[in-house]
Design a protein around this nucleic acid. Structure first.
Lengths: 353, 353
DNA sequence: AAGCATGATGGAATCGTTTCCATGGAAGTC
DNA sequence: GACTTCCATGGAAACGATTCCATCATGCTT
């Protein structure tokens, strides 16, 4: 039962050469044609697989990349993960995945675990703020953010995200003071997506539009405020935590406290789900009584009745591009990427009642 | 910029002890109280983190566990993954995730990658058959299957799955001949779930019930055949590949070729989605024209209209238990686990037209 | 008091690679 | 023909932990 692993030594011995030569042949170094051939033949015959353990130790890094998402149960993050996995597979790299539950504490813990594993490249949908991420980049990790940027420290909401927003649009007013801002990111063009949706609703006559947000939706709410302009009614901007229950409670509370609202913009698919459920529970008909636009084009948006009008963002692409960036190693010019969003009009919006 | 890692040597030196002592203290070996205290203090002060690399090489195994699922975009597998991740986190173990796309070839490739990484514990929702998994277990990997068992080799459909089915129910007729059958598994009680659903439909008067399956649904279709009995109409048993398009095509084809069917049992949530879509496209109303039961209780099942009657299986629990099993290391008595399913009646089934 | 058991301790080997460096032979140049 | 250059090659030193084993001091038994 004890199957000893075939090591490079075995190959060297069997081929009658030194271990150094075997290593060179296998990793593309120089060697005479006949030696190369012999070594390769022996390696194949013994079914030799170099141990990543030895290599990693010697090179002081794990080959793989880390991936941190808030919740794999959320279809959107599932898409992001699939993108990262696809890219990593084509590079032959393993991916260590962690689910943070949108909890900065768990996130920090998982980052610590990755550090311990010497995983030095990471794609993250961040939950914590700069206080989490500064030490990480400082520890020498190559990080690429996906879908979001880390907000400021918990106690200062706006300054951080405002600066981030400016970076997002590619026009940082001045050299960003915070090192976290130097981390490249792959984001959807939330600003444009939200603006398009708000304009669309506006065109249908809606004036009291509510925003239903969740953790990590700082940039979206900022874009919403900007799009709505001075007219923003703060009571109509509501935030939930990451759970389904909280999302439902927020949606339900919104509908009940402000029966005069005529449209809701849900900033994520779980929030959209909650909005649909809450509306149904309160006998509000969509789109007759209330119009609904949801962020994320998940497959089931089409199954709802009416089918949901959504702001689609390319989850898979976001993951793929982020993985590409982190694998390329971001050569000193960490340029972020912004991918387009698209308003897909289905049946959940109508003219103001 | 070059931040040298703090090693055990540094700690030893700073504490004025040998490396062996440090190692012992940190991994709970024996040491005098004062030494222990001093070492711990120094380690904390230097922010020392033992490198998993060194440890793994010495112990000839990576601590972590592997996880192979067909598609993270499928909510059910997202749930399974969340379960595995939760269990692994509580054990402090990293999880290397791979997405197989239900393709045995990709699966084999990913397994190879894990082997190379010396990941020796694996939770898998298998796509390939015994020909993939025999070598793996033989290589010394501890494997636990989740949600499915590997089918037989591609060319012999039934014998393999039949044997597996018997194992599932805990009454293997004889010592199983195939080593793969010895791999423990965490499964939902498909047989009972399917039977309940079929009986429910039967009770509503349905006689021509179709089965819409996908890859990995061998056990479900077997249970379906068993539940329907001799009356099974082979034309009503349809399989799709793993993609959404294929699922839609299968559903659509089914409805068109057999307009006389009165109920559909979709063996997975993607197939259920396809059935809803196809029915709508063909102007079949649910449940008036056709009743629908779907496997998997995904959150959006409730959002459909009518809300879908489903066979719920505990995805998260399946993942969690599987991870538990694989972490415990299955001491020679690889007992599988079967978790209950539940028929949740909503609004997608009605009496036969 | 001598011998023995016990427990703390540090040196050194080990895991499987990569990579530095020295060696040796062949080929090329004057 | 002697000198340099070049390349293939193998030995050995890392990498950072764990763990075996020898050493030594201490305390106990007889």
């Amino acid at each position: 039962m004890e199957v000893r692993r075939v090591t490079i030594k075995d190959v060297a011995e069997a081929a009658g050469v030194g271990v150094a030569t075997v290593s060179r042949v296998l990793s593309g170094g120089s060697a005479s044609p006949e030696t190369r051939e012999r070594v390769l033949a022996v390696a194949a015959q013994l079914d030799y697989r170099p141990s990543a353990l030895g290599r990693n130790l010697r090179q002081r890094r794990t080959g793989g990349i880390g991936l941190l998402v808030p919740d794999l149960t959320d279809t959107f993050f599932g898409q992001v993960a699939e993108g990262v996995l696809a890219c990593a597979r084509s590079a032959g790299e393993p991916v260590v995945v962690g689910s943070t539950g949108d909890d900065p504490e768990q996130e920090a813990e998982l980052v610590g675990m990755l550090l311990e594993q010497s995983v030095d490249r990471l794609v993250a949908v961040p939950s914590g703020g700069a206080e989490t991420w500064l030490p990480v980049t400082r520890a020498g990790m190559t990080v690429v953010f996906a879908d979001r940027l880390p907000g400021g420290p918990a106690d200062d909401g706006l300054p951080g995200s405002t600066a981030d927003l400016m970076l997002l649009d590619g026009i940082p007013a001045r050299p960003p003071a915070r090192a976290v801002a130097d981390v490249p990111a792959v984001l959807a063009d939330d600003r444009s997506g939200i603006r398009t949706a708000v304009r669309y609703l506006h065109g249908l006559g809606h004036r009291r539009i509510a925003f239903l947000g969740g953790p990590g939706h700082d940039r979206r709410v900022a874009a919403f405020r900007e799009a709505v302009g001075a007219a923003v009614d703060e009571e109509l901007v509501v935030f939930a935590t990451g759970t389904r229950d909280s999302a439902y409670a927020a949606a339900s509370g919104l509908f009940q406290s402000r029966p005069d609202l005529t449209a809701v913009l849900a900033a994520g698919n779980m929030l959209g789900e909650a909005a649909v459920l809450a509306a149904r529970e309160l006998d509000l008909r969509v789109p007759r009584d209330v119009s609904l636009v949801m962020y994320d084009d998940v497959p089931w948006a089409e199954l709802c009745s009416p089918p949901l009008t959504v702001i689609a963002q390319p989850g898979r692409d976001i993951g793929y591009r982020a993985a590409e960036l982190v694998l390329r190693g971001t050569g000193r010019r960490p340029r972020g990427v912004t991918l387009p969003t698209e308003l897909i009009v289905r049946g959940s919006c109508g003219p103001r009642h």
